[in-house]
Design a protein around this nucleic acid. Sequence first.
DNA 1: GCAGCACGAACTAATATGGTTCGTAGTACG
DNA 2: CGTACTACGAACCATATTAGTTCGTGCTGC
Lengths: 143, 143
Amino acid sequence: MQSAFLVNAVYTESAREHGITSQQGVLLCVLMMRPRGMGELGAMLGLAKSSLTGLVDRTERNGLVQRESDPDDQRAVRVALTPRGRKLIDEFYPETCRRVERLADGLGDADRDALAEVLGRVVRDNEVPVVFMEPGEGPFSKH
Amino acid sequence: MQSAFLVNAVYTESAREHGITSQQGVLLCVLMMRPRGMGELGAMLGLAKSSLTGLVDRTERNGLVQRESDPDDQRAVRVALTPRGRKLIDEFYPETCRRVERLADGLGDADRDALAEVLGRVVRDNEVPVVFMEPGEGPFSKH
DNA sequence: GCAGCACGAACTAATATGGTTCGTAGTACG
DNA sequence: CGTACTACGAACCATATTAGTTCGTGCTGC
């Protein structure tokens, strides 16, 4: 429980050092694998589409993602990482993982395993559909 | 096999005596239970929508069905029996059944049962979705 | 107080869907 | 032969639905 808050704090801290907010971090993580449509992102992140527009706006303004138009559907948009966004997430993501692991350095094996499990879940949450997310919780929130 | 042609012939004959074609008869049978949309009818009868427009046109011109607009969908149309259509099908349908049954009068029990089964299938074909129809066959065609 | 975050309602543009029209063609009937 | 019925596909119109954005509101943290 408390460790979950810790993880979250470390994550947010790490994000800030990279010059992004935690929400923008989640967005980048989701885009790590491939570009996504707005609707898709809204479903994955559990956001209303109007909220997502803003988040993508701000992240785009930071030069980390860009909107591309879907060739198959003229109204649809694909949100993709820019080179800068790719570079940032390629640093941010593994570094954050390392930091969280380091939290467990002082713990016994049992506790460390539990924490590893949580982080594993975080990773999965960023790659698979919403099915594994409790409602109202973002993929990086406390477990 | 041959009995199937017989059934078909009797059916067509009966239809003509009632002043309708066999296709129009099938249409009326399908509408016996309740009104249907054009798309739904096309699926049940295995007709392209342009073909169905014509069939409904002609049957409507004969005063047996009417188009009503679907209250829930302004582009959709429901095809329903008129009082005349209701009256006609209420005579035509059971009479045709009787005629077909009478065909079996000269037969042994086994043959008669087989024929009854065919007619039962015809009835079912008019009430359940297309699933039970072989592709390319109308509900009254030979089995 | 300003920037980020989130929401719902109203809106626009693009696409999907339900039916009709039109041109073509095969079949049956007088 | 001509007329009526059947059937099809392609083009078309009107309505529905969908993808995103904009706008107005409110909340949080610095």
